[in-house]
Each structure stands twice: as C-alpha cells, then as structure tokens.
Amino acid sequence: MPPVPLAVHPLIIDVAGTKLGSHERRRLKRPGVGGVILFSRNWASREQLAGLIASIKSVRPDLLVAVDQEGGRVQRFREDGFTVLPPMAELGRLWMRDAMRAVRAATACGYVMGAELRACGVDLSFAPVLDLDWGRSGVVGNRAFHADARVVSVLAQSLISGMRRAGLAHCAKHFPGHGWANADSHVDAPRDTRGLRTILEHDAAPYDWLRHSLLAVMPAHVVYPKVDTLPAGFSRRWLQEILRDRLGFTGAIFSDDLNMQGARAAAPGDTAAVLMALNAGCDLALLCNRSPLEQGRSLDVVLQGLEEALESGHWQPDPSSEHRRLALLASYPPVPWDAWMRSAEYVSALQDLTRI
C-alpha cells in the first residue's frame, strides 16, 4: 500500500552552511518540508546570502525563508550593509520621553528591517517579541519593548506596520508570555505559576488587542501549571481553547525551536516533539540545528515519521495550516538592494531610526 501523500508542509528546518549541499536539495524537495530558518552560520556576505536564498527558492518556490532578526542581541545579519537594529527596549525608553516619536521610530525600524531582508529574499522575521519586561527573565531582558502591555502593543503594531509595508511577514512571540518565568527555555524548563486570569490580563493582552494584525504567533516553551501541565507549545488548551477560540487568532502558529530544553523536557525525541506540537495546534514546527549533524539525517527520520504518523492516523493535519503557511510568503520578488536603499522611503526610515 503506497504512503498517504502529505498535503501540508509543516516542518521548518535549517541548512548547514553558506551553500546548499546536494543532500539538502533532496531534503527540501521532500513532502513535509515547509521552509528554512537561517542562522549566522549561513552568512558570509550579502551577495552570498541572496544566492543561498535563491538556491532554496529554486528547489521549491513555495518554501518559506525565515530568520530571527529582532534587533539588539538577536540579529543574525548585521554586516555588509545591514543596519544594526536597536534592542526593542530602546524604543520603550524613547516612549517614556516622547511617545509619538517612539511610534515613528518603531515603524521605521520595521521598515528598515523589512527592506533589507526582502532585498535578499527573506520572507519572514521572527519578530516582534511581545513579552513584558517584568525584570525577571534574563533571556527576554531588553528584547522586550516595555513592562506595560499597552505600550508593548502600540510599539509592536508600529514595528509590524513597517515590516508589512516593506513586504516582510512577522511572527509575534512568545505566547502567552515568557517575561515572568526566570529560567531560559533554551537550556531549562521554565515555569510560570500565576493563574490564567492574571496572565490574560497582562502578558497575553497584546495578543488579544493585536489579533486582527498578527500574521503568525509563536508559543513559549514555558509550563503554566495552573492552566496545563504541558508547555504552551504542546498544549491544546493554550493553542486551541485560548489563542484560537477565546482570543480569536486566525493566523499561523509556529512552534518555538523543538531542539530547546523547554521542549525536550516534555517530549522524548525529535519526531515525538514535532507531532506533539502539530497535534496541539501548531501549523508549523521548527526543528533547528540538526543539519550540521551527520548531514541532517535526523531530519530525514522526522520526515519519515510524519509520513508514518499520517498513514497510521496518529496525526491528522488541518488543511487550513497550508493556507496559513502560504499566506506568509512574500507577494512579489525581491527588489534589488541598491535600488531599494536609494529609495526616498528607505532613506527617510533610516534617518528616523538613527535619530534614537
């Protein structure tokens, strides 16, 4: 009996270096792969980056190309013409001095980020961070705009506006909020012992207020034991009952990297983690830093596991997931770098950004 064909492409994977290997080209053609997340190791120069992305798109034009380009300490590309973006806390501090100037600067920041990434062919940046700065989380820190959910929402909306004007999709993170939990989910299993009402009134409020603006959301690898025993990214209660049904979010849901300890503590392996995320309600599952190891053979194991889970009935994809993924792709080809950087809109945005 032939395998059941995959009608969705939920896995977002990485590639090992600055060029595609033949084994990576074959992998990107496989059913189940929906896109590529890029890291600093995939960077040598702007010309090389554009070439790598063009190679990815030549394998399958519908592959989503994404990167973490928040600003501050989380910015993968920052040389050869890329603007070094400020940490979002700088925009929050500017708000306290001049709110409308901060709104303008946040919009400019989003536009500069979007223009530079789109000129190289990137479709989406995993930004903005909507976590509140409670002064408790070292991993969030100055990645957060502010401690006030209202300020976070206004500045995030402005950043998103600039990104979308440049043609770049976004993904807000980390639902329902990582700012209260002390531990770093990259290396630990954080817990937030507050109740649902408190979390919804504060940390999750931006997701409610911005629900009609957000294209994508990433849940946190944080356990909120008064709501569910599973991390939010593995929790149907958080993703289906609260984010989808209660808050009315209709965009794409990405898992956070399933290679992080916050996910590892709840799942016994790569395939199990991916299936747990997808069955909980994620449309797309991020599995990072696997390609450099043994030519990424563990990724092939996961892809095989997805096909087997579909055939056995252990995974039933939501057909809407594929529509949500495709909606994140850029709607027009990259504009040449020099032409974009000389445009009046880019120059004006860059001037507004550098003034802060």
Rank of each mutant, 00 (worst) to 15 (best):
L258E: 04
C282F: 07
G251R: 06
N259M: 11
D257A: 13
M260A: 04
N259P: 00
A267L: 13
Q261M: 13
M260L: 07
G248F: 04
N279M: 10
F254M: 03
L287F: 14
I242P: 00
S291M: 15
G281Y: 05
L286V: 14
L239Y: 00
P268T: 15
M276A: 15
A266S: 15
L278T: 05
V274A: 13
A267D: 05
I242S: 01
I253K: 06
D245A: 07
D270H: 10
W238I: 00
L247E: 06
A252R: 01
E241T: 07
A280L: 03
D256E: 06
I253A: 07
L247P: 04
G248T: 02
R244S: 01
R237W: 08
D245C: 05
A285H: 09
F254G: 04
R290S: 10
C288Q: 11
G281V: 08
L284W: 14
Q240N: 02
C288E: 12
Q261L: 09
G281A: 07
P268F: 12
C282A: 08
I253W: 03
C288W: 09
L239E: 02
G251N: 04
A280C: 10
A273M: 14
D245H: 03
A273R: 08
P268C: 06
A277N: 14
A280T: 06
R237T: 07
L247S: 05
L287C: 07
A285K: 11
C282Q: 11
D256C: 02
D256I: 00
I253L: 04
A265N: 08
G269C: 03
L287G: 09
L287Y: 11
L243G: 00
A265G: 09
I242T: 01
R290V: 14
Q240P: 09
A277Y: 08
F249H: 06
F254H: 04
L258V: 01
N259S: 12
L247I: 02
M260Y: 01
L275N: 11
G248C: 05
L287K: 08
C288K: 15
Q240K: 07
G269K: 11
A267C: 12
R237Y: 04
I242A: 01
P268H: 11
A273E: 13
D245M: 01
L275P: 11
L287P: 10
G281K: 09
A272L: 14
C288A: 15
M260Q: 08
R244C: 00
M260S: 02
Q261F: 05
L284D: 13
D257G: 07
D257T: 06
T250D: 06
R246N: 04
M276I: 12
D257N: 03
L284G: 12
A272V: 10
W238T: 00
Q261V: 12
F254V: 06
T271E: 10
L278M: 06
F249C: 05
Q240C: 05
L286W: 11
L275R: 10
G248P: 01
R290H: 12
R264E: 09
N289V: 13
C288G: 15
R264F: 03
A280D: 09
